[in-house]
Design a protein around this nucleic acid. Structure first.
Lengths: 169, 169
DNA sequence: CGTCAGCGTTAGGCAGACTAACGAAAGGAC
DNA sequence: GTCCTTTCGTTAGTCTGCCTAACGCTGACG
């Protein structure tokens, strides 16, 4: 009944995708149960660890696009989990800070995600889980440093005269 | 400079996602260079290994939704890489078969994907790559068997009666 | 022969990733 | 101080992948 072609089953990039899709789905499901999404968690966690920050800084740290961040912050502040106030030192900026309610929510989500992790990686032994984390970390670190996401400092002007987008899409 | 919160950097599900997103992007880019997409490859490979099949069988084996498969097959047949003809034995079905041109394309894509794999997993030693494949295979096999994709026999009824989810956007 | 299930197809929703552009404000050069 | 450029938050819109719903047709079964 089940299962496809040899080539597909052993294609490493595909395996990676399939595993990730499944994990993503589980995470999304669980977070939805708490009325949150991945980005909400990312923002709350980042604010908690780094303290108040402007939206663009948040965008850099969470890898959420500035344009999409707006909606996320709207939702979070609608629930009183963050506060957004103009920065007196620079009126272009908003200073975003996490609230007590936000910390409570963050704590809830932390536990939730730990449970999902346990569930998703249940078929692996603790040693294997650690192994997997190591391998993935190597990969992510490697390309994370050379292919910075929407980098604002290095890019921006490289739109050559040809206008061509190097990454066709 | 770089990099976000500890909690995010060490979250296993997130690492998995990030690695997969990167791999996916590379794959998509390269395939685009050959005028193909992932699904095209999946279909061609499956046809090549299993021989002619109906669309719904293809859908099962490739995990491409029947609705989306239509467009993929249109494109492939537009390029002469597959042939689609009504099954004389059951007029509801189309029999899809790969052509010689399709096999050539498949071969091209195989090489292309091998190169991408090499590139994406370059930071890992061969032993580590094998390890990763093993770990991912365990994960995929495990949930692949209990959470059949768009399973048609055992529907899911989880969409509550409450109607839509008015996600503001 | 009538009902039901399976097939291919069309249409559409929704979310995530990403680009473009804009008004407001800041910073620097002169 | 006046230009010019950059940064910031924001809105709008595109594109793709994932997924549901429904339709018309055909075959299977009682």
């Amino acid at each position: 009944m089940n299962e496809g072609a040899e080539r597909l089953r052993t294609l490493r990039t595909r395996l990676l995708s399939l595993a990730a899709v499944h994990a993503d789905r589980r995470v999304t499901e669980e977070l939805a149960g708490a009325g949150a999404r991945k980005w909400h968690y990312a923002v709350l966690a980042t604010l908690d660890e780094f303290g108040p920050a402007s939206q663009s800084r948040l965008s850099d740290r969470t890898r959420v696009y500035r344009s999409d961040l707006v909606a996320v912050l709207n939702e979070l502040s609608g629930r009183g989990q963050i506060e957004r106030a103009p920065d007196p030192a620079d009126k272009r900026r908003n200073l975003v800070r996490i609230t007590a309610a936000g910390r409570r929510q963050l704590h809830t989500l932390d536990q939730l995600l730990a449970a999902v992790d346990d569930d998703v990686f249940a078929p692996l032994t603790p040693a294997q889980r650690a192994q997997l984390t190591d391998l993935l970390t190597i990969l992510v670190d490697h390309h994370g440093n050379r292919e910075d996401p929407h980098d604002r400092t290095a890019r921006r002007h490289d739109r050559g005269p040809g206008g061509g987008d190097p990454r066709s899409r």
